[in-house]
């Protein structure tokens, strides 16, 4: 139990996927202009990461490992995640239109995002057991959501600040993200 908790806290704060590992940056900078969109995106990414992580673990341990085809991991995971997200979008569109209106459009954006691919890859590399990989997936999703919400709140304030013309938009966003990353560096070595 304690190791699950450590792993969870580790993936949310210490090894934050965006601020420490620099993954998922395109959605991070793309969606963080608006706080409401960011919350929706955070939820969407967490769900997709968790579900595809479970699926990937199953495929790895019951198909790839027994047949000694671990070198196919990356490509199989990519195909898996892309098709799975498509399926998810179809299901949600039909079964839960209200949910689809809220964050259905983000699903297409995160279909082949590096963060969604890296979580299963990393849990396979670290040879996590089934429940451990789920905890890891939820933790990384939450960490991503945390970083996204922090960034969105900062960027909404930045919209009214006196930014030098050459740095407006992406420039200042990257600088602020760098500072956030530096701040999170303070957590390293905690676990």
């Amino acid at each position: 139990m304690a190791e699950y908790f450590t792993l969870f806290i580790g993936s949310v704060i210490v090894n934050n996927f965006v601020l420490t590992k620099f993954l998922g940056l395109c959605i991070f900078f793309g969606v963080s202009k608006n706080l409401n969109a960011s919350v929706g995106m955070g939820m969407a990414v967490t769900s997709v990461i968790t579900l595809s992580s479970i699926l990937a673990w199953i495929v790895y341990h019951f198909v790839l490992l027994p047949f000694g085809l671990t070198f196919l991991t990356t490509i199989v995971f990519v195909v898996l995640i892309a098709s799975f997200v498509q399926l998810l979008e179809l299901i949600i569109k039909k079964q839960a239109p209200a949910l689809y209106n809220m964050w259905g459009i983000y699903l297409v954006l995160i279909a082949t995002n590096c963060i969604v691919l890296s979580v299963p890859l990393l849990s396979v590399e670290s040879d996590y057991a089934f429940v451990t990989s789920i905890v890891f997936a939820v933790g990384s999703g939450m960490g991503f959501a945390l970083a996204l919400i922090l960034m969105a709140s900062l960027r909404e304030k930045l919209a009214y600040a006196d930014v030098p013309k050459p740095l407006e938009g992406m420039g200042i966003a990257f600088i602020v993200a760098g500072m956030l990353s530096l701040a999170f560096l303070g957590f390293s070595g905690m676990l």
């Binding site: 495929v59 196919l72 399926l87 179809l90 079964q95």
Partner: peptide, 30 residues
């Protein structure tokens, strides 16, 4: 042997997901 296994597994994964998506498209069509 590995080469054949690769072809089989990749082919299988592709076909399985293709079929699932095709069915889902029909079943969840709006």
């Amino acid at each position: 042997n590995t080469a054949i296994m690769v072809l089989v597994v990749m082919g299988a994964v592709g076909i399985v997901f293709g079929v699932i998506l095709a069915i889902a498209n029909k079943k969840f069509a709006m």
